[in-house]
Design a protein around this nucleic acid. Sequence first.
DNA 1: CATCATCTGACTAATCTTGACCATTATTTT
DNA 2: AAAATAATGGTCAAGATTAGTCAGATGATG
Lengths: 155, 155
Amino acid sequence: MENRSISDIIEAYLKEVFGDDTQIEIRRSEIADHFNVVPSQINYVIKTRFTIQNGYLVQSKRGGGGYIRIERVNLLGDVDVLNSLVQAIGNTIRERDAFAIIQTLYNEKVISQREGDLMLMALSKQTLAVDDTNMVNKLRARILVSFLNRLRYES
Amino acid sequence: MENRSISDIIEAYLKEVFGDDTQIEIRRSEIADHFNVVPSQINYVIKTRFTIQNGYLVQSKRGGGGYIRIERVNLLGDVDVLNSLVQAIGNTIRERDAFAIIQTLYNEKVISQREGDLMLMALSKQTLAVDDTNMVNKLRARILVSFLNRLRYES
DNA sequence: CATCATCTGACTAATCTTGACCATTATTTT
DNA sequence: AAAATAATGGTCAAGATTAGTCAGATGATG
């Protein structure tokens, strides 16, 4: 953790702001000023680290009194959230996004580390290596959705 | 230790860096500079000396703030069983045979029921549905072997 | 001298940073 | 009201900064 990018640092800062709350509201320019970066970098941090795959929902408003609101959600705990997630997956998903989902499930204690590792194995680029990249992403989506459904309906 | 290659020296250096820690994080270019070799030589050292068979896991990230992280893990005792299973699987396996292996792993208490269920999801004909049956069996073999490789160690 | 391990470098891929330009909403002026 | 202005956030593409891959050259060993 020595060579962190400024994006990593901003990510950590925002997560710290949450504290025990389930949502935070920020002004983009304030955060950008605070870390001395261009405002659009905040969009980058949000787009890459606070996605639905990571267990976050984001809303914003422009103009005077504008804001960016980030909400932390449980992937399997809420039907609407799960639907959003499945929609985001669609029938194809990249390795990085799939990995983020597994990480989120682990963070939420829905799965153990070993279960998560096993899932990562089945979803990895290396394991699924096939000539056709398009096919790999489709396969990964099917396997991941199978996992999610299994977790959802288990009792 | 007379004829040590530079790869051997880099290997020894990295292992020294571990100290009592279970993982280290390096910048590829730094190590390469330090030993005056091209960066890709570091990949060579890692690929030949920090494998899972030797008890190491490797993760990396490119781009700004990029790194290579090497983690030392404990290899488990029943490696021979896993080896023979991997041998038996080869590069293709039918659904029923894969299911039998999962059942055996569960009977032998190598995996929990939940882990077994998740594995079955990823190995099922339905999940892997692809036009080419031959391809399905190859994919299943790769996924199953990946699972077995994860069972070789504990974090 | 045949084979395997090591070393190199050109090319590729992923991630982060920056800035110019765009879109939306609120407030002030006419 | 309507129009202008101010105050937000959004998008996208270029450039910078890492690491990965692969094939060929070179070296070591039996």
